[in-house]
């Protein structure tokens, strides 16, 4: 079996994998980082979104071996260094942007990528960015609100959580 090595949440990791091992299975099974979820088999739900070299990608549609040498960040790796919730994570809590929590890691990782590219997105831009993330619980309303609030806070503005 070939070996793959990469950096996951700042830690160097290496493991034997099959050619067909998906990045998401490598994270969940080999590293037991189960925050990255699998919600579909057609690349559409986004429950599996992680960052590969800073870009959000669907870990269910990438081979672990393709990530050789990459820097991977998962939901387990985005809290503040002291372990407290990041601005974006906290905005999801403050604005009730999650219910069952299953889509949440993918939503957060996807939104983090958006805010890196666009510090001041409009509501339309947020909604369109989330095209690849399905949520069955929230109706998206509060997810969008949370992302807009996090963007505002990161720009130094403050939006009341009602």
């Amino acid at each position: 079996m070939p070996t793959v090595s990469m950096t996951v949440n700042g830690k160097a990791v290496a493991s034997d994998v099959e050619g067909r091992t998906l990045l998401v299975d490598f994270l969940r099974e080999n590293l037991r980082l189960t925050g990255t979820h699998v919600g579909c088999d057609t690349l559409q739900c986004g429950a599996c979104v992680v960052h590969v070299n800073g870009d959000s990608v669907k870990a269910c549609s990438m081979l672990a071996l393709s990530a050789e040498g990459a820097e991977i960040t998962t939901i387990e790796g985005i809290a503040n260094p002291d372990g407290s919730l990041s601005v974006l994570q906290r905005a999801f809590q403050d604005h009730h942007g999650l219910q069952c929590g299953f889509c949440t890691p993918g939503m957060v990782m996807s939104a983090a990528d958006l805010l890196k590219r666009n510090a001041n997105p409009s509501e339309r831009e947020v909604r369109e960015w989330l095209e690849g993330n399905l949520c069955r619980c929230t109706g998206y309303h509060n997810i969008v609100k949370a992302i807009l609030a996090a963007a505002a806070e990161m720009r130094g503005e403050k939006i009341a959580a009602e």
């Binding site: 099974e29 189960t34 939901i75 919730l85 809590q93 009730h96 929590g101």
Partner: peptide
């Protein structure tokens, strides 16, 4: 009161335990 949910922290940090997360 619009109390913030206590369950959120585990879900937002990838520490939820769904059935498939268990081995």
């Amino acid at each position: 009161k619009a109390v913030k949910r206590r369950e959120d922290v585990r879900f937002l940090t990838g520490k939820g335990t769904y059935t498939d997360d268990m081995n």
